[in-house]
Simulated scan of single mutants.
Amino acid sequence: MTTILLTAVISSAITLFVVALWGHFYLQPRLKSGLKRELDEEARKAADLIAASVEEAVKRGINEGVRNLPTREMLEETSRSLARSSTELVGERISKFFGKK
């Protein structure tokens, strides 16, 4: 009876060891590479979305600024303000994407 139990325990230990090796050397690298690919793709999509919204906001701001400003100094100040706003918008979007507060 002891021999049967000892054989079962050794067999189970060998099985666990083989499964652990398979998980470590085969499954884990595949999962990591798949996750990295998906994360890179989502980051690219987010960057494209942010770029499009920033571009639209800049165009709209410049158009409104040119229409509403009579002097060169006011146009320069609006351009600076628009650049600051765009930077803040991009910063907020990137912070939200990476989960930073």
Rank of each mutant, 00 (worst) to 15 (best):
R30I: 08
V66T: 01
T15G: 04
R84H: 15
I14G: 01
I14E: 01
G34V: 09
E77M: 11
E41P: 00
M74N: 01
L49F: 07
E56W: 04
P70M: 01
L27K: 04
L49A: 13
V9E: 05
A83Q: 12
S53N: 13
R37K: 14
G65S: 03
G65C: 06
D40Q: 07
I94G: 01
S12V: 12
L21F: 09
R93T: 06
S85M: 10
K101A: 11
V19A: 13
R84K: 14
H24D: 04
R60H: 05
A13H: 03
L35T: 12
R67N: 07
E55N: 12
E41T: 07
W22Q: 04
F25Y: 12
L31N: 11
M1A: 15
E76M: 06
G61M: 04
E92I: 05
G91Q: 09
G65I: 08
T2I: 14
A43D: 01
R37C: 08
F97N: 03
S53I: 06
S85F: 12
F25W: 04
E42D: 11
A83M: 11
F25G: 06
E76H: 03
E42W: 04
V54Y: 01
K32F: 15
V19E: 01
S79D: 07
A43L: 09
E76R: 05
L69S: 13
V66F: 05
A43P: 00
E38S: 15
T78G: 14
L27P: 00
E92A: 14
E38R: 12
F97Y: 15
R37E: 15
E56A: 15
E42M: 10
V18Q: 04
K101Q: 11
A51Q: 08
G99C: 02
W22V: 14
T78W: 01
R30H: 10
D40A: 14
I94C: 06
G65Y: 06
K100I: 11
F17C: 07
F25P: 00
L16V: 07
M74I: 05
K32H: 12
K45N: 10
K59I: 10
L39D: 05
M74K: 07
E56D: 11
S95I: 00
L6D: 10
L39M: 11
K100C: 00
P29K: 05
N63T: 08
T3I: 13
A43C: 00
T71I: 04
E64A: 10
L35E: 15
L89H: 06
E73Y: 00
V54L: 14
V9G: 02
A13S: 09
A57F: 12
G65E: 00
L69K: 02
L69I: 06
D48Q: 08
K59N: 11
L75P: 01
Q28V: 09
I14K: 03
A43Y: 01
T15P: 00
R84G: 10
V18P: 01
K36I: 15
A57Y: 10
V54I: 15
